[in-house]
Design a protein around this nucleic acid. Structure first.
Lengths: 220, 220
DNA sequence: TAGATTGTTAATCGATTAACAATC
DNA sequence: TAGATTGTTAATCGATTAACAATC
């Protein structure tokens, strides 16, 4: 296996996009592509794409380009999509239910094996054909199922106690939708944050500071 | 009003975090803070915080630091949280309903004024005390309500046609949850993407390539 | 005044882009 | 072989960090 020592987050965050595009090309029946063609479709430079890919190995062929199917497979392997990490979801509120129902966990390297909530009125309800379990039973659940990742769709105030409980059970990876900063207390944890509030605020900033802003319908 | 010409996205994406922390400090009764104290709480360097703030003006006082309440207000003003941009939500599926119910639009510079969906079985249902309207009635709705932003919780395949419809109605800002790239066709549009799939894939990468990975419960 | 901390300039670091030799 | 395009090194650009003079 190739180099891959100190890949920067900038590179890592581009990989899913490459993966998505290549799979689309594959479905469209495209068999080969050059970095220049790919860069036009993605709005990047060809140089950057070649640099990014060469962090992991030489997947192309001089004078020819890249074989779409092969490159998609390589990136899939790099991302680890075949791992199917056993995943539990904490929080069956609006957001948790949407995430459970909406995400294609299986295509993205994860397998959703359990949904947990504290609230008695949520326990027993069914999401995506899966019964919401009581958080109280989580230790028992772990004995049989050994989850590896937890998606946290719970309030900020509940996250610390939840991670304190999950971390010693071997769950060291978190997809975190709250603004609680898990890595402050658990620097070894692998944490991916989704900060919807921050995302919306940056949009607000950019609307407010957009010189093009017209806020007026196009005149006919 | 101060400088503010060419603020980089790196800086803009840190502003919501500053804003959140400062509001928390305010609630905690903290009245003043130095860049060094703030940097410790945020896990950044003091230098970076001062550089960031000085993109917008000198909000501090030498030898003293920053007045929490005042700085929070300044950043709020910079972000534009008081604008309450009139917002419509397209798509009342799992994700759309969760976004409608879960987000505090009002605190984040937006006001949700309408939810739209094509599906007859969704039209008329109520989310957050708001009736889902038929997309067919959107032009009429615009005459009275003049929305400025659209949150798009619709399938990727529906986005192009939707933006083709909304853009001429004066809606040039989008909070986009699909993987359709709006700026390719509308380079002037202000677009904030939330790519949940990409987020999950980067987590997968980092779990797969984490040298610390044990995937084993802590021994007692 | 002395101490502290900002605002700002300069130095460093990292990421992107350009260039080109290697090679299919 | 000639043409094309990669892999990779070098140059540029931008972002972060360090240093310190200004000043409260």
């Amino acid at each position: 296996m190739p180099k891959r020592e100190n890949i920067s987050m900038s590179v890592i965050r581009r990989l899913p996009r490459y993966y998505r595009f290549l799979n689309q090309l594959k479905r469209d029946g495209v068999t080969r592509i050059s970095s220049t063609e790919l860069s036009a479709k993605l709005g990047l430079t060809a140089s950057q794409i070649r640099q990014d890919l060469n962090c992991f190995g030489g997947f192309g062929q001089q004078g020819y380009g890249y074989i779409v199917e092969q490159l998609a497979a390589e990136i899939g392997r790099i991302l680890g999509v075949a791992h199917n990490y056993r995943t539990v979801l904490f929080g069956a509120g609006n957001l948790g239910r949407a995430i459970a129902a909406h995400m294609d966990f299986e295509e993205l390297g994860f397998e959703l094996i359990g949904i947990f909530d504290n609230a008695p009125q949520k326990v027993g309800t069914v999401i995506r054909g899966m019964e919401v379990l009581n958080t109280a039973s989580f230790e028992d659940f772990c004995k049989d199922n050994k989850p590896e990742m937890a998606a946290l769709c719970i309030p900020r105030t509940a996250v610390e106690a939840t991670v304190d409980r999950l971390y010693p059970l071997g769950i060291h990876s978190y997809w975190n939708f709250s603004h609680y900063d898990i890595t402050m207390k658990y620097p070894d944890a692998v944490v991916e944050n989704v900060h919807l509030n921050d995302s919306l605020l940056t949009l607000c900033y950019r609307i407010s500071n957009n010189p093009e802003a017209s806020h007026e319908p196009t005149k006919k």
